[in-house]
């Protein structure tokens, strides 16, 4: 080991090892608690949950198998989230780059901002019914707020010296926008995309509780209605893992686009 790294978790393989060890530790503690303490009366063991998850890949919960439930939720999240990205980034940039845009949009946005996505559920049902559209709407509204906010901050916090430097090198307004404002906002935009992604996962659960016959949120709700703890945990664990995978994919994309921010040799 080099003397430079003071932290114990130094290299990449070590970080992965620690992560695996921590997760394994968590499941072992859970298993032991269930086996030897009163926790066993209110909680299934992780082994039971995993077995039930594997089983539900073939035997449907309700009308669909677990992978289908996950795909349904995933489709809702991705559609709602993509809409939020398509709306949020341009709106944030309009607010951050143009004074007129800021003057017009910001007051309206500030009113909508404190309203949680879930507060839109009644209106969504009135407007779009209880079908898929109202779910997309709720997810989109929930995710859009943080995407707009972070994009706006990013576009606003462009270093004026860099804008001056670009102008001195002959860049016109449009070139400053494309070559300075946008790239310097990218890290902020990604922060917004991450928060937005977790908001849309939260929203899908709530949206599926409204009225649906499939999805991870539905698994949890019906599990609750029938007092089936295993089923509730299946829903929760699925959400956890899918969320983790999506967030990592996004982080990978960010890393690729923002190599310039990575320090080191």
């Amino acid at each position: 080991m080099s003397s430079r790294s003071i932290s114990i978790a130094g290299s990449r393989t070590e970080v992965v090892l620690y992560a695996v060890a921590a997760l394994a530790g968590f499941f072992i503690v859970w298993q032991l608690l269930v086996m030897y303490t009163a926790v066993g009366m209110v909680m299934p063991s992780p082994i039971e949950v995993v077995e039930a998850m594997v089983a539900s890949c073939a035997d449907p919960i309700g009308s669909k198998t677990l992978p289908m439930h996950i795909l349904f939720s995933l489709r809702r999240v991705l559609i709602g989230y993509l809409l939020a990205v398509l709306i949020g980034i341009p709106v944030g940039i309009l607010m951050g780059c143009f004074q007129v845009g800021e003057a017009i949009i910001k007051p309206v946005f500030e009113i909508f901002r404190p309203i949680p996505g879930l507060a839109w559920i009644p209106l969504a049902i009135l407007w779009f019914g209880i079908g898929e559209e109202s779910k997309y709407f709720i997810i989109c509204v929930s995710a859009a707020v943080s995407i707009i906010l972070n994009t706006y901050e990013g576009a606003k916090s462009v270093d004026p010296t860099l804008v001056g430097a670009a102008r001195m090198l002959g860049a016109n307004d449009f070139q400053v926008f494309v070559f300075v404002t946008i790239p310097s906002s990218v890290p902020h935009i990604f922060a917004g995309l991450q928060v937005g992604l977790s908001s849309s996962w939260m929203a899908v659960i709530a949206a599926e509780m409204i009225r649906s016959s499939e999805g991870t949120g539905w698994i949890i709700t019906t599990g609750m209605d029938s007092g089936n703890t295993v089923q509730i945990l299946i829903g929760m664990v699925s959400i956890g893992f899918i969320g983790l995978i999506l967030a990592s994919l996004l982080r990978g994309l960010e890393k690729k686009l923002c190599t310039w921010r990575i320090q080191g040799r």
């Binding site: 270093d159 010296t161 860099l162 001056g164 430097a165 670009a166 001195m168 070559f179 300075v180 790239p183 310097s184 990218v186 923002c258 310039w260 921010r261």
Partner: peptide, 12 residues
């Protein structure tokens, strides 16, 4: 041409 104290390079 301008050369800046804080370099003002485009970090990206």
């Amino acid at each position: 041409g301008v050369v800046y104290q804080k370099t003002a390079l485009f970090p990206w």
